Simulated scan of single mutants.
Amino acid sequence: MLDPLQLLSAYCEGAFPMGHEDGSLSWFRPPHRGILPVQEFHVPRRFAQYLRQHPFEVRWNTAFGDVMRGCADREDTWINDSILDSYQALHEIGFAHSAEVWRAGKLVGGVYGVAIGGAFFGESMFSRETQASKVALASLQERLKQRGFILHDTQWTTPHLAMFGGHEIPCRDYLDLLDRAIRLPAIFDEERPPEAQLMFR
Score class of each variant (00 low, 15 high):
Asp173Asn: 15
Thr157Ile: 14
Leu184Met: 10
Arg183Ile: 01
Ala162Ile: 08
Leu177Val: 00
Arg172Ala: 15
Ile150Ala: 00
Ala162Asp: 14
Phe164Gly: 07
Ala162Met: 13
Thr157Lys: 03
Asp179His: 14
Thr158Ala: 03
Ile169Leu: 10
Ala162Gly: 12
His152Gly: 04
His167Gly: 13
Leu151Glu: 01
Leu151Gln: 03
Asp153Ile: 12
Glu168Trp: 07
Phe188Tyr: 15
Gly166Glu: 05
Glu168Arg: 15
Thr154Ser: 01
Ile187Glu: 15
Ile169Asn: 11
Pro185Tyr: 03
His167Asp: 12
Ala181Val: 04
Gly165His: 09
Ile182Lys: 13
His152Pro: 01
Pro159Val: 11
Ala162His: 14
Arg183Cys: 10
Ala186Pro: 06
Arg183Glu: 11
Gly165Asp: 14
Leu177Lys: 11
Arg180Pro: 02
Asp153Met: 11
Ile187Cys: 15
Asp179Phe: 01
Thr157Arg: 05
Arg180Asn: 06
Leu177Gly: 08
Arg172Tyr: 08
Asp153Lys: 14
Arg172Met: 13
Trp156Ile: 12
Pro185Val: 09
Pro185Arg: 01
Thr157Met: 09
His152Asn: 08
Thr154Arg: 01
Pro185Ile: 10
Ile182Glu: 08
Ala181Asn: 04
Leu184Trp: 01
Asp189Pro: 06
Met163Ile: 05
Leu178Lys: 02
Glu168Val: 09
Pro159Tyr: 05
Gly166Ser: 08
Ile187Gly: 10
Leu161Gln: 04
Phe164Asn: 05
Asp176Phe: 07
Gly165Val: 14
Leu184Ala: 08
His160Cys: 07
His167Asn: 13
Arg172Asn: 12
Gly166Ala: 06
His160Glu: 05
Pro170Arg: 09
Cys171Phe: 04
Asp176Trp: 00
Gln155His: 09
Leu161Ser: 05
Glu190Met: 10
Ile169Trp: 00
Ile169Pro: 12
Thr158Lys: 04
Leu178Phe: 00
Cys171Met: 14
Ile150Arg: 02
Leu177Asp: 07
Asp153Ala: 14
Asp189Tyr: 04
Glu168His: 02
Arg183Tyr: 03
Leu178Ser: 02
Leu175Arg: 04
Asp179Asn: 14
Asp153Ser: 13
Arg180Ser: 10
Asp173Phe: 00
His152Ile: 01
Ala162Glu: 15
Glu190Gln: 13
Thr158Leu: 03
Thr154Leu: 01
Ala162Phe: 11
